[in-house]
Design a protein around this nucleic acid. Structure first.
Length: 872
DNA sequence: GAGCACTGC
């Protein structure tokens, strides 16, 4: 017999509100029983299925089991659940618990949710990206084809006004059942490490004779280790046992921290203890008020992990952990004044993370204009731009319209999924990894590529601790693959893995994901989704139980002799074209990463001697010694690999004899762009105009083939300011708007109108100053730095032939003695493609149509010359 | 003062 809960009394109110509005926001604190009571309540009224979306797998399974038990039916009967790798769904399942992410996958197969009557979003206040998207899609359905779809949003926070405005529906609030927690603020000195204050607070609790276990919140593993040490050094009369607790720990060790102990426990935990894990016996919370938070920096395309002050809502949640079973206390290691200055909520995920996967999925769901999509809170523009750029560079989207009509490229369109993009959206992984899997399939190394994708998308299988080097592995990735295959050959045996500092559970997880990814997201995925919505013959059994044991598909180790040993690096290059790094100079530990970033190699890497690498992982870490960009999971590259990638992008064959060295050197040099430019600037005499012209030239040359242009202008101005203040003797300008205008005039001539760079994206501004023909020219020339086959050159010259230059790069245009006047779309320059022996192949004076007309001709010639080559 | 939070398909 179910225990009565406060929510049961709100039943009439909830059903009445839902009957009138079709949607509802339910505000009820954690522990009020909303996850278990509301969905069955809805099921009684619904004709079709009820879907309940949970943020976490664990909660999905546990809540479904609880509900099935309370309803007195087997799991997989009327009540079921489904997560990525396991589930209990039967033909009779009408109440289905599933993760938010799986729901979005389901929409790909069943966009109208035909058999679904009601949708419940549980724990919505956590504001995961998938939850925001799921809700927005539900709203869209209600507004279009499914006005009858009931939507209930459940949130633990009281701030529900935005939500009810968004859904245009009422809010029902209920009380919780928590015990009071006495909160004290302890003003710890901010410049002291948090573990010292935490240890003092623990001592205070013990000395005051307050009983009960203590839960300490720290931002990360490092702080946890220090706190555990500090607590051990307290030497209190009462024996304490301190346990670390964080997500990277193996499950057995986590269990040990949660299990009852003879001594009083001090559990030092990260945010895992805030929501995901409930710890019995805790009466006291000590809160550092800090958390490591992942953010995506769209300007640099980098994931950062920084220590931040938690919000007031998060502090409230942490304090609540002390009052689950009886009244408790919470000591906050920051002042009340600090507390009042903190933000109310954490930034929702949509405001901080990489959006490329979300964007790809939305495109595949037919949402082509992200700008007008009905977000609860729209994502930041810069993040959307960055995601679009990434999708385009991965080949998932294509610019619309006539490719030659480049004026329509700004702002870039969000839709226009390519066939490749459509396939990528079906692969349940980040777009980069989806591309990796598909490229692997195309190049005949599907299994290896899918395994790499699985290893990169799941938690690392490497545990801290000593590992014997594998003789056969020469780089990080093949080392990882070899270790995984060893673990797999031993059936992911716990003892075997432990002895080799591998996590058996993480490896099993990778194995499951690998099995899914190697199907490239099509056949199997259909089945899963069908099972969710329509039921299927093999449902009702834990999914994967048949395939996970015994029968194992042949595993081709990447260490086995490979007829095409460079295949995997080439696949990786399509997935991570911007993760290439070159050593800054021989022997230096500093690497230059594409886009002007600097980085160092991870300590664990095997590729210590490589000069050109691809980094599967790039992270910016805020550690004890400041901020550093660290490259890890490295694969050595050969210059030929880069060449191959360029050729692929150009649709040309690398078998032609190209001018390889030039290309590679150029690419590597472009990664050092900012440093070179600064050196140049330093050497310039005290001439403001010259400095401005240099800046403008660089802006155009750099900005047109890289994204995030406006930010680059700002970065550039910053750099110049830095140089100006560091080398005052050079008399360089402090760069202001007047200098900007001068720069643009130097670039374009004085009769062009000045557009304020700050107001609009700088690229737009500079481009708008150019005539249409000139604009097309720079657009087409600079982006890819198109190269010609060996012996062929592009020459730029005046009609009179005053100043022919070497290769036609955009800088060369601005190196001409005076800026060419442009009129009527005709450019008084001659462009010629010179063949071997300088024999001109083509000449034109129409720059606007140069690539449109000449490039296909050139390509046709090449095709005739190399007929046996396979042209793409 | 070793260099890393938590989810999820």
């Amino acid at each position: 017999m179910p225990i009565p809960l406060p929510l049961d009394s709100a039943r009439e109110e909830i059903l009445a509100a839902l009957a009138v509005n079709g949607s509802l926001v339910l505000s009820a604190p954690t522990g009020s029983g909303k996850s278990t009571r509301i969905p069955p309540m809805l099921l009684g009224e619904a004709r079709g299925k009820v879907l309940v979306l949970e943020p976490r797998r664990l909660a999905t399974r546990l809540v479904a089991a609880r509900v099935a038990q309370e309803m007195g039916c087997p799991l997989g009967g009327p009540v079921g659940y489904q997560t990525r790798h396991e589930g209990r769904v039967g033909p009779d399942t009408r109440l289905l618990y599933l993760t938010q992410g799986l729901f979005l996958r389901m929409l790909l197969d069943d966009p109208r949710l035909d058999k679904v009557s009601a949708l419940v979003l549980d724990e919505f206040h956590e504001r995961h990206l998938d939850g925001d998207i799921a809700l927005a899609m539900a709203l869209r359905l209600r507004r279009t084809t499914r006005p009858d779809l009931a939507v209930v949003v459940m949130s633990a926070t009281l701030d529900t006004e935005t939500l009810s405005d968004y859904l245009d529906c009422p809010v029902v609030k209920t009380r919780g059942r928590a015990f009071p927690v006495e909160v004290r603020h302890i003003d710890a000195a901010e410049d002291r490490p948090p573990w010292e204050a935490a240890a003092r607070a623990v001592r205070e609790i013990v000395r005051a004779g307050e009983s009960g276990d203590i839960l300490v919140f720290m931002p990360g593993g490092y702080e946890i280790r220090r706190t555990v040490e500090a607590v051990r050094d307290l030497h209190l009369p009462e024996p304490l046992t301190a346990f670390p607790l964080h997500g990277e720990m193996p499950a057995e060790e986590q269990d040990r921290a949660l299990a009852p102990a003879t001594n009083r426990k001090v559990i030092v935990a990260t945010n895992v203890a805030e929501t995901s894990i409930t710890i019995p016996g805790v009466r006291h919370v000590v809160d550092s008020g800090l958390a490591r938070v992942a953010r995506f920096d769209p300007r640099r395309g980098i994931n950062m992990l920084t220590v931040q002050k938690i919000s007031r809502a998060s502090a409230e949640q942490r304090a609540g952990r002390a009052g689950r079973t009886e009244p408790g206390t919470c000591r906050r290691l920051w002042s009340l004044y600090d507390h009042q200055g903190r933000s109310e909520h954490e930034t929702p995920e949509i405001g901080r993370v990489d959006l490329s996967q979300a964007l790809l999925l939305l495109n595949a769901l037919g949402v082509n204009d992200i700008g007008t999509f009905s977000w609860l809170i729209p994502p930041p523009d810069a993040a959307v731009r960055s995601a679009r750029d990434l999708l385009a560079s991965l080949g998932a989207t294509a610019p619309d319209g006539d490719p030659a009509d480049l004026d329509h490229r700004f702002p870039p369109p969000s839709g226009n999924l390519t066939e490749l993009g459509r396939q990528m959206a079906r692969v349940p992984a980040h777009p980069r990894l989806a591309r990796l899997v598909l490229e692997g399939e195309r190049r005949g190394c599907r299994d290896d590529a899918a395994l790499v994708a699985a290893l990169l998308s799941e938690r690392t299988i490497l545990r801290p601790g000593p590992r014997n080097p594998l003789a056969a592995a020469s780089d990080d990735l093949s080392d990882l693959l070899a270790r995984f295959s060893q673990a797999r050959e031993h059936g992911f045996d716990d003892a075997f893995c432990q002895g080799r500092s591998l996590s058996a559970s993480a490896a099993r997880q990778v194995d499951r994901t690998w099995r899914q990814l190697r199907q490239t997201g099509q056949a199997r995925h259909h089945r899963t989704a069908r099972a969710c919505t329509h039921g299927s013959a093999d449902a009702g059994r834990p999914a994967g139980s048949a395939s996970n044991r015994g029968l194992s598909p042949p595993f081709r180790s990447s260490l086995s002799p490979d007829p095409e040993p460079r295949t995997l690096p080439l696949c990786l290059l399509t997935a991570f074209p911007d993760h290439v790094a070159a050593r800054s100079r021989p022997g230096s530990p500093v690497f230059n990463l594409t886009g002007g970033r600097r980085a160092t190699l991870s300590r664990e890497t095997l590729c210590t001697d490589c000069d050109l690498v691809l980094a599967c992982e790039i992270a910016e870490i805020e550690g004890g010694s400041g901020l550093s960009t660290v490259l890890s999971l490295l694969v050595p590259l050969k210059p030929d690999d880069l060449l191959e990638m360029f050729c692929n992008r150009m649709g040309l064959s690398s078998e032609l004899s190209w001018n390889r060295e030039t290309q590679v050197v150029e690419q590597i040099e472009s990664t050092r762009f900012f440093d070179l430019a600064i050196e140049e600037t330093r050497g310039i005499p005290t001439d403001r105009t010259a400095a401005a012209a240099l800046l403008a030239r660089r802006i155009v040359a750099e900005g047109l083939h890289l994204s995030g242009f406006d930010d680059r202008v700002e970065a550039w101005v910053e750099r110049l300011r830095f140089v100006a203040t560091t080398f005052p003797e050079k008399g360089l300008p402090v760069f202001d708007d007047a200098d900007r205008q001068r720069a643009i005039e130097a670039l374009c001539g004085e009769d062009y109108r000045y557009a304020k760079v700050k107001d609009r994206p700088a690229l737009e501004a500079v481009r708008s100053l150019l005539s249409p023909a000139h604009r097309r020219f720079v657009d087409e020339m600079a982006p890819e730095r198109i190269q010609l086959p060996r012996g062929h050159r592009i020459r730029v010259s005046y009609p009179q032939g005053q100043r022919p230059t070497g290769r036609a790069r955009i800088q060369d245009l601005y190196d001409l003695p005076s800026t060419p006047r442009i009129a009527g779309g005709r450019v008084p320059l001659l462009l010629e493609i010179a063949g071997p022996n300088n024999r001109p192949l083509q000449v034109t004076d129409d720059l606007a149509n140069f690539w449109k007309v000449l490039y296909p001709q050139l390509r046709a010639q090449l095709q005739r010359r190399y007929p046996r080559h396979e042209w793409r």
